[in-house]
Amino acid sequence: MTQSPHDGTSRPHEGGDAASPEELRERIEQTRAELGETVQALAARADVKARAQEKAAEVKEQAGELTTRAVDPVLRGTARSAELLRDNRELLVALSCVAAAVWVARRR
């Protein structure tokens, strides 16, 4: 049994038997690794600048997605209009000539 440094009471080793020096070293290494992970997690939570940058990147990505969803239909509509104009050039030229003739006739 070992004495707890915090409360002065005795308690048995994990596993019930006295640990060998090698087992103690393994436990110490495992504890160090766990402590290192805990410190890293706490440091990440305390790094306000990094968390703010992550949030800004997330918001920027969301804004880009919203913009794409809003602009795509407009671009498709514009492309369709341009296609209709190309397909009906003769009609467009004829209507332009009529409009010009009406404009000239009204000016006189």
Rank of each mutant, 00 (worst) to 15 (best):
R51N: 09
T38N: 11
G16D: 11
E23W: 05
A94K: 05
E22C: 00
R32L: 02
A18Q: 05
E61Q: 12
A63M: 02
L85Q: 10
A100Q: 12
Q62P: 00
D17Y: 01
V74L: 09
V74N: 04
G8W: 02
L66I: 05
R11A: 14
Q40A: 07
P5F: 00
S20W: 06
D17H: 11
T2N: 09
A50D: 09
L85K: 12
E34A: 06
R45I: 12
Q53M: 05
I28V: 13
H6L: 12
M1Q: 09
E83P: 00
H6Y: 14
G64K: 00
S4D: 13
R89F: 10
A82C: 12
R69I: 03
A99H: 10
T9S: 08
V59G: 05
G36W: 13
A99F: 06
V48Q: 04
H13S: 15
M1Y: 11
R86K: 08
G15A: 04
A33C: 07
A19R: 01
L42I: 14
N88G: 01
E65Y: 02
A100M: 15
T31K: 11
Q53R: 05
G16Q: 07
I28Y: 08
G8Y: 02
A94D: 05
E14G: 04
R27W: 08
R80Q: 04
L92F: 12
R80I: 04
